[in-house]
Design a protein around this nucleic acid. Structure first.
Length: 273
DNA sequence: CCCGGAACCTGAAGGC
DNA sequence: TGCCTTCAGGTTCCGG
């Protein structure tokens, strides 16, 4: 499930192979992957464009084109972008192919068909409501404290709310809360300034570690080369229900929050109230 | 505005 | 062996 570190890795590894290349063709195996504009418009306006820049915002990839339009891609839960030779046969989960000059192609693989692409003139129509980038200078402990004040929702729910802060999903939210020693059901607005400081530091640390390890291949995440990432080998808490807490040995618990499995240590992360 | 739950989507895993 | 249910969770939508 690609979150910020996975999308950042994909961006970094895709970039040198595609910037400066021209889109020579588009093949769609599932039309639903195109959200905007119509499928016909999407393909005809894309063909002939050169890619000038690849960027990331939250979990979105933004590919800039010579027409000054942007191709925005979201991988949702099970999507990956694979670099393939032009002659490669698509497997049964490939939903779209972007053919590039220079005998390469980008295969958009997505078993669960939740992924999406948009071709728009103004990227803000798609990503305009995202919260701050957690690894940018704008994201300070003070900003986090201000944004948390008066919020009653569980801190876990706020961490993976993309309008609250961009790029964090279920796994890295659990990892950050464990590193900060904060129970996932604590109300956001009730955290002390000291706890907010620890959480700010923990968020940046787990995301940077994720990037350093080229993302977490817990499910269907692959890098553009088809290789897996390694970040899941370093997870302390996420997806480790029943196993001993790495800090104190207490069995890790799992509770649903907003329909997501949330893993935490009941001793290192004391329950609210 | 804030919050919580359902819907979208399908493969994997587990129960019987 | 196979059918059925449940689970996975990023985003959007909707109701209170």
């Amino acid at each position: 499930m690609p979150e910020l570190p996975e999308v950042e890795t994909i961006k970094n590894e895709l970039l040198p192979h595609i910037v400066g290349h021209q889109i020579t063709g588009v093949t769609l195996f599932w039309d639903g992957i195109v959200r905007q504009p119509s499928v016909g418009e999407f393909c005809s306006r894309l063909i002939g464009q050169r890619l000038t820049r690849v960027a990331r915002r939250g979990k979105y990839l933004i590919l800039s084109l010579t027409s000054h339009e942007v191709l925005i891609i979201h991988l949702k839960m099970t999507g990956s972008l694979l670099l393939k030779p032009a002659s490669a046969e698509p497997d049964r989960f490939i939903r779209a192919i972007l053919h590039l000059n220079g005998e390469t192609a980008i295969h958009f693989r997505d078993p669960r068909k939740l992924g999406a692409m948009w071709l728009v003139e103004d990227e803000n129509t798609i990503i305009g409501k995202l919260g701050p980038e957690p690894l940018e200078a704008e994201f300070t402990p003070q900003i986090l404290l201000t944004r948390l004040s008066k919020r009653r929702a569980p801190i876990k729910a706020l961490l993976f709310d993309q309008t609250f802060i961009a790029g964090i999903g279920n796994m890295y939210a659990d990892e950050a809360l464990f590193a900060a020693g904060i129970h996932p059901l604590r109300s956001g607005g009730n955290l002390s300034p000291d706890e907010v400081g620890r959480l700010h530091r923990a968020v940046q640390q787990v995301l940077r570690n994720g990037i350093k390890n080229m993302g977490a291949s817990t499910d269907t995440y692959y890098r553009p080369s088809g290789e897996t990432g390694f970040a899941h080998h370093h997870f302390q808490i996420a997806h480790r229900g029943g196993k001993p807490c790495p800090a104190c040995g207490t069995p890790i618990e799992r509770i649903p929050i907003r329909n997501r499995g949330s893993y935490f240590c009941p001793k290192c992360q004391p329950a609210p109230k």
